[in-house]
Simulated scan of single mutants.
Amino acid sequence: MAAWRAYRVASILLEGQLHRELVDAHDITLADYEVLVRLAERPEQRMRMSVLAGEVASSKSRVSHQIARMERAGLVERDNCTDDGRGVYAVLTEAGMAKLREAAPTHVDGVRRHMIDLTTDAQQATIAKVFDRVGAMLAETPED
């Protein structure tokens, strides 16, 4: 119970802190930052919306609303999938890439100050191993 509670409180506080830092400095949410990162890492800076939802651990509906908001801000745009009439891509715009480049140092500094600098290399390796395992198991679990 101690491990669960420590994780739960710290993860909520850490995510909130990283979110506030991005909003205050760059007027972008942590969730938006995660979307920009995922798109920037892809060839042609585009990704099917359904795949994006999985990568950011969100529902397709929530990602659709998020992309609509980001589209209004000029950070992304939607593009129809030519191979599959039902598929839709989220595509990073030049403004979105500029926002990511602007916000990345703030995010990296926050992660470093609030987590990495507080843990040893061995602790970081353990955290990665534990949550890779938890994530892999949950990714295999049907959403029913």
Rank of each mutant, 00 (worst) to 15 (best):
L18Y: 06
T29D: 10
L39P: 00
D32N: 09
H26E: 05
Q17I: 14
E21Y: 10
D24C: 09
E44M: 02
H19I: 01
R38Q: 11
R20N: 13
M47W: 02
L22Q: 09
D24Q: 12
T29Y: 05
M49N: 10
R46Q: 11
L30S: 10
E41G: 08
L36D: 00
A25C: 06
M49R: 15
Q45W: 02
E41K: 12
H19L: 02
R42D: 00
H26M: 05
A40N: 15
H19Q: 10
L22A: 09
V37W: 03
A25S: 13
E21M: 14
R38A: 10
E41L: 15
L22K: 04
V23W: 07
H26D: 12
R46L: 09
Q45C: 09
R48A: 06
Q17M: 14
Q17E: 12
L36S: 02
A25T: 07
V35S: 02
A31G: 12
E44V: 00
V37G: 00
L39N: 00
L36R: 01
E34M: 15
E21R: 15
P43G: 10
E34S: 14
M47C: 06
L39E: 00
R20Q: 13
P43N: 12
Y33V: 05
E44W: 00
A25Q: 12
E21D: 12
A31H: 07
E34D: 13
L22W: 05
T29Q: 08
M47N: 00
V23D: 06
E41V: 11
R38D: 03
I28H: 01
E44R: 00
H19D: 15
E21K: 13
A25H: 10
Q45A: 13
R48D: 05
D24G: 09
A40Q: 14
D27N: 13
Q45M: 10
V37Y: 01
R46P: 05
R46M: 10
H19K: 06
Y33E: 07
V23R: 12
V51Y: 07
D27K: 11
D32P: 00
R42E: 03
H26G: 02
E34F: 11
A25E: 11
V35K: 01
Q45E: 08
D24T: 08
H19P: 01
D24S: 14
D27G: 10
V35A: 02
M49P: 00
L36V: 01
H26N: 11
L18S: 02
V23N: 08
D27E: 11
L18D: 04
M49I: 15
R42H: 00
V23H: 04
R38T: 04
A31K: 12
H19S: 08
D24Y: 14
A25L: 06
L30A: 12
V51G: 01
R48N: 08
A40I: 06
V23E: 13
V51H: 11
V23T: 10
S50D: 14
E21A: 13
H26S: 05
H26V: 01
R42T: 03
H26Y: 05
R46S: 04
L18W: 09
V35P: 01
V51R: 08
E41H: 09
L30G: 15
L30N: 12
P43V: 10
D32L: 03
Y33R: 04
A25W: 03
V37E: 03
M49D: 04
R20H: 11
D24M: 09
R20T: 08
L22D: 09
V37T: 07
E34V: 13
V35L: 08
I28A: 07
A40K: 06
M49H: 04
R42M: 05
P43H: 13
R48V: 01
L18G: 02
D27P: 04
L22S: 08
